[in-house]
Amino acid sequence: MNRLPWWMGGILMSGLLLMTFSVFGADRPIGASTYVPFFAGLVFDLDPEKYTYLKEVQNAGSWEGIMLLGSLFGGFIVSVFLTKTFRLSLVPTGWKKYKNNSVLSRLFWSFISGFAMIIGARLAGGCTSGHFMSGMSQMAISSMIFGAVVMISLLITGRLFYNTKED
């Protein structure tokens, strides 16, 4: 089998979340956006003593940093041996179909949206993993607010940004 169905993915992801939450596992939720400012601190050589935010994310950032290394490894192994999708590419097929064929345009928008995405995630205090998956599983009101705002903003942007009428 080279693709897992969505329901199998949901069951496995739920098992992973429960294991991570449990005191026998890591006793914390899964998160995947705190590592970004943490790595920014490392790459741009910021002194953690001077910046409040770096001090705040020291532990969570380290934890997610190790998890990130694992997910890079896991993603690579599965893409080479199971899904057979490893290849170098610059423009996604869907972008070519619904936006344009320009490499420059895709790279420009990737950069801008990557930048804005991290600012957004850090303002809200979480991302798809931390808020949507881990937070909504705890039935946190904050995560439900975030989830609703993200869904609306995602669907409106999808409608305005792409030319979806051509087919």
Binding site: A32, W109, I119, T128, F146, V149, L154
Partner: peptide
């Protein structure tokens, strides 16, 4: 944050958890 995150997700087609997995492939 949600507005910024949602609109970036639509344009980028990734989020901070799935992005690294895409880089890995």
């Amino acid at each position: 944050g949600g507005i910024l995150f949602g609109s970036s997700m639509a344009i980028f087609g990734k989020c901070p958890g799935t992005g690294p997995v895409s880089i890995a492939e």
